[in-house]
Design a protein around this nucleic acid. Structure first.
Lengths: 111, 111
DNA sequence: GTGGTTGTCCGCCAGGAGCGGAACCACGGT
DNA sequence: ACCGTGGTTCCGCTCCTGGCGGACAACCAC
């Protein structure tokens, strides 16, 4: 089979990132967008600050309930979080590692 | 504070689904769309069929590497998978549990 | 009954989730 | 130097679950 890769579409082939890495990256970005402190979100989520730090840095695999607790503490819906992460993953796939970080945060729900 | 909720936008308030549930649901839907067998995808992913069954039914929290192995076996990119799950979560949030399942599957990559 | 296919149940254990205490780092101020 | 703040890392710990293999279940055809 002929493998003709459209080079003008794929500049640099990024390996697939791991879920926990992109999740953590997005959670931190969201928190920072809100100007919240790590200890505050951790407390609101009912988890230890050490653990939230590790989640944000992609060092731990949080359970689904933990993900729910942190997104809840951030006031973010799972669907919006996933959409935002998806967008980020796709963007990095197309352009490679971001040089200038684009402000990324899911849409906040109006309470 | 005045809490004015636009009722015409929110018909029924669905509790947030768990990540492992929506992930598993989407993986199974994707596999079935492709007409693949569970044992084949499990083998290709290098995991046991029993385990893939449990992942698909939202019974287990797969590690990020496992998610990568399964998406790889399905020929699906993480970003596309996440986008599709996000769309599904948002759809269910807006309309409640789906009565008729809309065909849901991420876009397959052209090799 | 036989056989085949596909997927799920059950028990198991190695290792990781999640924790708390303590130390460390970076930065800013006095 | 000191202090404070916010975040990170290290460490040891307990508990529980990830991922597995053997067995089972459901379904179909002959």
């Amino acid at each position: 089979m002929a493998d003709i890769l459209p080079f003008h579409q794929e500049r640099t082939r990024e390996p697939e990132p791991l879920w926990r890495v992109v999740l953590g990256r997005n959670l931190r970005a969201t928190r920072e967008e809100q100007g919240s402190r790590l200890v505050d979100i951790a407390e609101r989520a009912g988890i230890s600050p050490q653990y939230l730090s590790e989640i944000e840095r992609g060092r731990k695999e949080p359970s689904s309930e933990m993900i729910a607790a942190v997104t809840g503490a951030l006031g973010v819906e799972l669907g919006d979080l996933l959409a935002d992460i998806a967008g980020e993953v796709r963007r990095r796939r197309a352009t490679g590692p971001a040089v200038g970080r684009r402000p990324a945060g899911p849409v906040l729900m109006a309470a």
